[in-house]
Structure formats: C-alpha cells, structure tokens
Design a protein around this nucleic acid. Structure first.
Lengths: 244, 244
DNA sequence: TCAAAAGTGTTGTGTGTACACCCATGT
DNA sequence: ACATGGGTGTACACACAACACTTTTGA
C-alpha cells in the first residue's frame, strides 16, 4: 500500500465519524475496496512473489503484496494493471482475477474488501526494467513465506493453487519465460509450480504434440555439454491464453 | 435489490454530494459493495435461475438476480447466504464465490462493485419451502434470458460457465437433486448443464466407479415401465464438495 | 402383447506412464 | 577421454467412446 493510499484511508475514517449517528449505517456498511496483486516470477529456480515492506501501521515493517485503491473511472482490472505497472514497470501482461476477500477485520482500521488478481512475469523482463522506486521491494520464495500483513498469506496461497490448476488444463507458463527458451527450462517451470518431477521424454512428447511451440534456428550453450535447441510459443497460443 | 437497499443507495449518494468539494475524491472513489447471487435449479427438465423483478429505477420492471449490500460484521459469504435465505428460505447449501464485477458504470446511480456468488437448489426443496414474499420472483430458463438489469446477464453467463467446469472435474450435481434419485435423473442434470447427450452405459459405469453413490433399497415408478433403482450420495462426497 | 424406460458388457482407440541409452560439446 | 546435460522410442496400463439387446412394469 502506497503512502497516498494510507492517507486516504485515514481521511475516510475521519469522515465516517460524522456519519455514525445515522442508524442506517449500523446495519449497512460502506466498505472500502482495494485491489491486491500477487505477482509471480521464477528466480534462482524458485517460484517467487513480489512483496513490499510496509512503512506504517497497521502491520508496520511487515511484508505485503502490492495493492491499492481504485481510481475514479477505472475498472477493477485497470486498477490492478496500473498497480502492476507501478511496481514492475511492465505492461501488457496476462492478469487474472483471483478472488475477493472480505473478512470484517482483515484491516483493523476499516472495513476493506479486496479484489485480488495475479500475474506472472519472466525474470528477463525484471532485470531489464528494474524499479527505480525507493520502497523496500523484494522477491520471496513462496516456500519460505511465514507471516505477511493482513490476510495476504491466504491470498498468496490461493494464487499458488490457482496457478497449479491453470497449468494442468491450459498450459500458459510462457509468461514466466523469455521469448526463446529451451524445453528443459519450460519443464523446470512446470516442475516448480506443480511441485513434482516430470519425466523428460513424456514431457517433451506431450508439450510438442500440443502444437503451441515452434523450434527456432538458435541454440543455447550453457556449460560444457551439448547446446539446447531454443523454442518459442506461437502467437496463437498467446492469443488463446488471453481468451481464458 | 430490496427496498431498504434502494433507499440506502440514495442516502449514500446524498452524503457524497457534501464531500465533492474534496479534491482527494476526484482520484479515489469510495465504491459501494454488494453481493449478488445466481441461484440455479432444475425445473421442467431445464436449467433455471432465480430472478426478481425490479420495482424502481434504474432498470425498473426488468429482472435481476438477487443481491444486496453487506451488513456490518458480515463476511461476503455470510451476506450471500443471508440473501439466499431471504429469497428461498433455504439454509446450509453449497455456495461458491464466482467473480467480482466492477465496471465503472454498471450501476448508473453510483460506483457499485459486486461480488457474485452462485448456488444450486434441488427443486424438491423449492416446492416445500415456497416463498411467502410478495415480490415478483420467478425461475427463468437460462436459454431464454435476453435482457437483465445491470450487467446481470454477464454474471449469469459466467455462473453457467463455472457450473460446467465444476461438473467436469468434481461432480457435485447433488445439490440439484433430492436426497434419493435415479441414475437417469442424475444423467439428465449432467446433460442439461454440459449441453450434450451422454451415453447411458458409459455414464452409469463411470459415476458408479467413483464410489460416491450408494444404492438404496427403494425404487421409483414413473409411467408404465420398469421401476428405477434409487441412489443417494454418500456423506463423504458431500463433505468433499465443501472442501473444494 | 405392447409400449416405455431400466438396466447391462465388450471392443477399439487414444492418452499417460515407466523406463535407458546415445549425442554433442568444452576442457 | 570424460563429464555434463540434450535428445530420443517402445511397451503396458488405463480411461474414454461407440454400440444393441434384454428386463420389468401397467395398461
């Protein structure tokens, strides 16, 4: 949550005080609405999420997923895209609504309902478009998350579960890879997300039979062994993904 | 949308007027949040949804899915359960969050974000616990919906799509059936939702192999032909469903 | 005995899984 | 020549799809 947002919530709280005499507001609430985004990448052969360290209470100094209030005229998705861009400087990537979280006391200051989204970014785009912002931002291994601010741990867990499901029936891992990649790199993504080893021959047989990859004329040398063929996803596959 | 809710939205609009001088509110909005529920049943061998006819503008006289504002202290799910109960007098049925809808002008009066849920009720419970309420309420064939208030047609379409997905990988159609039912009745539910004919022998073989049904010692006579064996879902299956 | 839905098995096809060796490269 | 990951094919098990006749009942 950014600084302007934090001051916004205080202001809203102040304006609520004056309404509190009204009996209607005892029954109905006017909750605040945020969007929060779980941003995944693969770094050091681990599935990681982007977290921001909070500066002020509640949950000061704890880590949280990026999020914020919706601007006037924005759709939910546009708000999520904007926040994604603000944190990563990356635009035009696949973003999917995850779930809405609305437990009454998830934010101790006020009733805040959040619509959570998730996205994936390949690590090569991260390096190129590093963030100038002074905030404490970092990538954290999803296996090592213990405590997060608010109910953000629940949100991350649900995002990981969704990622697994999605990968099973509509293989869309390409957001996590550079434009060109080896089949072994692709397999590693699958293994990381599904948390299981896959058979090399069966994996290649299946992924190639889907007809969503094409072989480029380049190879990639890494270490003192046979170079690997580079593949790329077809445009058709990319379009299909956005139609999910 | 019920009458108290409609007066609530007007009241909120009035209070907004006084805030409008504040520059902060030009950037950030304080949207209202509702829950809306798509309630399915099977009647006359058709998949139907519960709709309520609106009494006042906007979309006066048009049909809409039930929904309303969240009460103080309620979770989103509790609000949905409450509205479901208010419309159907049925409690304790499976309810699942569908999606959140937040296009800026989906409600012309104000920025309203809705968290949509869906549920299924067997037609036998409907007959028993008919609704005393004087509102115009009815069950409508999903194939014959043309116009609905707000973006409710989108919401219903998405709920139907979710129902199809769910049925494929986690067969949970039992909410749409009475406690005891024939295999043909179960097959009809599948065919209605998936919109395709299924082979009788293959369907029975598969559904029985799942071990989620048991044969009761009763049969059901309907018409002048051989009576059908009645089956029931195991408790285990019902528990599994709530763990989705 | 007829009409109408209930009930029942077998076979082919395709998909997923298990498994071991040769290839190309730089040192 | 060797160490390292890249690359390849076959056999078996299982799930899914196609398909037609007998059974039980009331009229």
């Amino acid at each position: 949550m950014t600084v302007p947002d934090d001051s916004f919530i205080e202001q809203i709280q102040a304006s609520k005080q004056s309404d509190s005499a009204d009996s209607k507001l005892a029954t109905y609430e006017t909750p605040l609405v945020t969007v929060d985004i779980v941003i995944f990448t693969v770094l050091d052969n681990k599935l990681k999420v982007l977290l921001i360290q909070r500066k002020s209470p509640p949950f000061a100094h704890m880590w949280a997923i990026p999020g914020g209030f919706i601007h006037t005229g924005e759709t939910l998705e546009e708000a999520a895209e904007r926040r994604l861009f603000e944190e990563t400087n990356v635009k035009g990537i696949y973003l999917e609504q995850l779930y809405s979280f609305g437990k009454p006391n998830r934010d101790p200051r006020a009733r805040v309902i959040t619509v959570a989204y998730y996205a994936m970014i390949s690590s090569d785009r991260l390096k190129l478009e590093a963030r100038a912002n002074a905030e404490n931002v970092g990538w954290f291994d999803i296996k090592e998350l213990t405590e997060l601010a608010f109910d953000h741990l629940d949100i991350v867990h649900r995002a990981v579960a969704r990622l697994k499901e999605r990968l099973k029936d509509s293989n869309f891992a390409f957001q996590l890879l550079p434009e060109k990649f080896t089949l072994t790199e692709l397999q590693r993504i699958y293994e990381l997300i599904l948390e299981q080893k896959l058979d090399k021959r069966n994996f290649r047989k299946k992924i190639l039979s889907l007809g969503i990859l094409y072989e480029t004329d380049e190879t990639k040398m890494e270490g003192y062994h046979r170079p690997a063929q580079l593949y790329s996803f077809t445009e058709r596959q990319k379009v299909l993904m956005y139609e999910l």
